[in-house]
Design a protein around this nucleic acid. Sequence first.
RNA 1: GCGGAUGUGGUGAAGUGGUUAACACAGCGGGUUGUGGUCCCGUCAUUCGAGGGUUCGAUCCCCUUCGUCCGCCCCA
Length: 438
Amino acid sequence: MSYQAPRGTQDILPKDIYQWQTLEDMIRQFCYIYDYKEIRTPIFEHTNVFKRGNDASDMVNKEMYTFQLENSSTSLTLRPEMTAGVVRSFVEHKMYGEPDLPAKLYYVGEMCRHERPQKGRQRIFHQFGVEVIGVKNPLLDVETIALGWSFVSALGLKDMKVLINTLGDDESRDRYREALRQHFQNDIDSMCADCRRRYEQNPLRILDCKVDHDLAIMKSAPRMKDYLNEESKVYFEQVLQGLDALGIPYEIDDRLVRGLDYYTHTVFEVISINQEMGAQATVFAGGRYDGLVEYFGGPQLSGIGWAMGLERLLIACEGEGITIGERETLDVYVLNLSAETALYAFTATTMLRAAGYKTDCDYQNRSFKAQFKSVERKGAKVVLIIGETEMENGQVSMKRLRDQRQEVVALDALIDTMDDMFAEHEDDHHHLEEKRSI
RNA sequence: GCGGAUGUGGUGAAGUGGUUAACACAGCGGGUUGUGGUCCCGUCAUUCGAGGGUUCGAUCCCCUUCGUCCGCCCCA
């Protein structure tokens, strides 16, 4: 093999595409009901859209596909996430000036991160996500979570868990970060290398260290909730009350801090506890961001959003034995018996297609047997058999697979006969209506 | 970025330093010159991820490289 797709990327082949199409259809239906509008932003942005001065996350600092064209001084980056691009767009198009805020947006698209691939982690992967920007109301935190939760529930996923926490506002978080630094100050040198790094970059992440998890110093570490100011505390309580009211189960996890630097207040992570998930169990996750709109030059408006890894969602579905979408079938297969009748058969095929019947035929002059196997593989409901006799008489032989009924009809009467035949059976009829309505 | 496993036809897989690379499924052809799903027969990898090296000779030994899988890290 001389050419292969780059590491961590994959082709989604026709045999699997129905899953993706079904998933995307469902996503659009859900967002339609919640009155969220789709937004499509560029697949690359100016690097500084993602790389913002204070950002210490690995995603931004180590995993971005950043490039610069030879005769240009502009640095561009393939998007590793959508939130930054969406907020940039929100500000650039002054959506904050539109009536009926908040802007309720959703997207589906591929993201690029230069990570080491493993189960549930690829270099190009698909995310479905929502962003609600312009109004700060705990009910919107609840609404976004509810949208995602009802979506995964509608798919039939049961092994799901909502973990939630609050980081408070900037003031609360700064005070907490300082408290953590002081707490670990004397012991940090004896802790693991990762923790020493986190101590500098993001002390909050020390708390979910797996290596040093059992140290006494961990257990005695200060808790976020003790550093929340009144406003932050009330906000979080209102979010939880909303979730209670909707009957969405959750666990408060005060070690949940999230990796992206822009989060404030609510942060959450919805994980699958299914065995098949491997090490990457987070299906969708997100939080509120108070400072981003302003960062991009807009007014001081808050937003909330989450992103869902669609490959991970499919793994979770597979783990729970959920199949998405149905096998495609064919209305008619046109079986041609000789090279001499090929054009006649092709004409019949074209007539059926023009009438809205999903039709395919043979292009290889294969044997009767081989063609009939195609009929089965493709799940055709009706097979048209065309040989020299039919052609000479301007007819076709039409066989309905359901009851093996076969008749010879004039080519001119083919479509009428098909319509009658399909109308007899309710499922077939339904199928026909669907086709006709296109 | 670190660690471990792995790579033979469309698929699932045997295999050995020595000339024709098992077997099964799928495909295709035929038995049944025009009615399938069963059965029978035939056919189907100058080639063992790629590139180099050792050797009289390498799919099997060595090196490099690429991909895949799993874990760490990180994240969706």
